[in-house]
């Protein structure tokens, strides 16, 4: 799936996303649940971070398709008219199956998303499931500042897996 169309659908669904970190983690979590953004993620200090996504965002801002406006201590991303028009031209205006999931993710704080996104990354990289001691230990080592969020992140992720399984999102 084309990344511009996917980002356009995401921004159209949630209207706006506050902050780069939130956008990075939302795309990562959606991708881990099977939504094809086709961007690769590496691990950085603030958790999974995609240089490819960052680069694409800058490219789309350069073309006037996505705009970023300062908002309090962060910034807001939203789709421009030209991008919404493109979605119409390629018949991508109906809400995607993953729209409710995106809306729910957008309601979470960046720190909560960072914790969930990191858990998903560790699960994939280490082969150990979320909930195992190995993942907990690595998480606490990598993210001492998010230690208190770990139990909540694990339970939220478990709920997501029931409600928004990849099969349901593909439906």
């Amino acid at each position: 799936m084309n990344i511009l169309i996917q980002l356009g659908s995401l921004l159209r669904t949630v209207t706006q996303i506050e902050g780069r970190k939130k956008l990075q983690k939302m795309v990562h979590i959606l991708q881990e649940f099977g939504v094809p953004f086709d961007v690769s993620y590496g691990y950085h200090f603030y958790g999974p971070f995609s240089e490819q996504l960052q680069d694409s965002l800058q490219s789309f801002q350069h073309d006037g398709l996505i705009h970023e406006t300062p908002y309090h201590q962060t910034s807001r991303f939203a789709a421009d008219a030209k991008l919404l028009e493109l979605l119409e031209l390629v018949d991508a205006t109906s809400p995607p199956a993953w729209a409710p999931f995106a809306i729910e993710l957008n309601a979470k704080s960046p720190r909560d998303l960072e914790a969930i996104s990191t858990l998903l990354y560790l699960e994939k990289q280490t082969g150990n499931i979320v909930g195992s001691d190995a993942v907990d230990e690595t998480f606490e080592k990598l993210k001492p500042n998010l230690k208190e969020l770990l139990p909540k992140a694990k339970s939220t992720l478990a709920e997501f897996r029931v409600t928004f399984s990849p099969n349901k999102l593909a439906a």
Binding site: R20, K21, H44, F45, F49, E51, Q54, Q73, T74
Partner: peptide, 26 residues
């Protein structure tokens, strides 16, 4: 391609955490 992947210092005021994240990464 972009010759240099960096963060425009002008975004520092708007989104300090996002700026720091990006600077630390690249």
């Amino acid at each position: 391609f972009t010759p240099y992947k960096g963060e425009d210092p002008d975004t520092k005021k708007g989104d300090p955490e996002g700026y720091e994240d990006s600077v630390l990464a690249t």
